[in-house]
Amino acid sequence: MSETLAFTRTPSVAETPTHYCPGCQHGVAHRMVAEYLDAENLAEKTIMVTSIGCSVFLYNYLRFDSVEAPHGRAPATATGVKRVSPDKVVFTYQGDGDLASIGMAEIMHAANRGERITVVFVNNTVYGMTGGQMAPTTLVGQKTTTSPAGRCASTEGAPFRMAEIVAGLGGVAFSARVALNNVKHLAQARKAIRRAFEVQLAGQGMGFVELLATCPTNWKMTPVQANEHIEAAIIPTFPLGVFKDIAKNAGAC
């Protein structure tokens, strides 16, 4: 009999414990990004653009060279990094408030220009860091601290489905939505993260991956309940799938 290490911390994840609440899946999301970059030996040429929100301290948890972008501007900052350093691997890591509200212009235009960057978008349907306010991806009917009666579609709009919207833009080479709530979905997530980087490396355009994640604290649920809520309520609004993959589009330039 021989014993092998089947799972351990990948080197690009720092030993530092995270500040995230119990059951928050940010830790899973950024760990999977680091696992991909380590597996492909890309860590030493990676430049990470962090954002504002619960993941603001990401540079303490992942050991990549990092620049902190002001709220919403990460795709613009990543554009600047990549345009002067085209040989580097560049990714942004953004939450739903950052990417789909204050940063809507930056993600749309970076996607439309086809910036050769990867966007890792964590959607947990609330502003976590500031205490659970309504987000651009809050479900219709979902109660938050600023939609106490539940989000009303006729006055507050319906949630933005970013993976589909981004997939509709010409500069995007890959766009998918995945979830982190069970092992099968984690495998899909791993594959989507890989593709979102591969299209960047191949110079084909932007790679975009939306990860549905829990926010037990602001959903006022236990971590296990929140994880079940992903399947029961979040996925029905945000269907999983690959909405664009340039590899499958015959004739793509």
Binding site: I47, V49, V67, A69, P70, R73, A76, T77, A78, T79, G80, V81, K82, R83, V84, S85, K88, A105, E106, M108, H109
Partner: peptide, 18 residues
Amino acid sequence: QAESEMAAINMVLGAAAT
């Protein structure tokens, strides 16, 4: 050509950080 002045200065941030 950036989509706004906010985007422009933050592109500068990214490029300058390198």
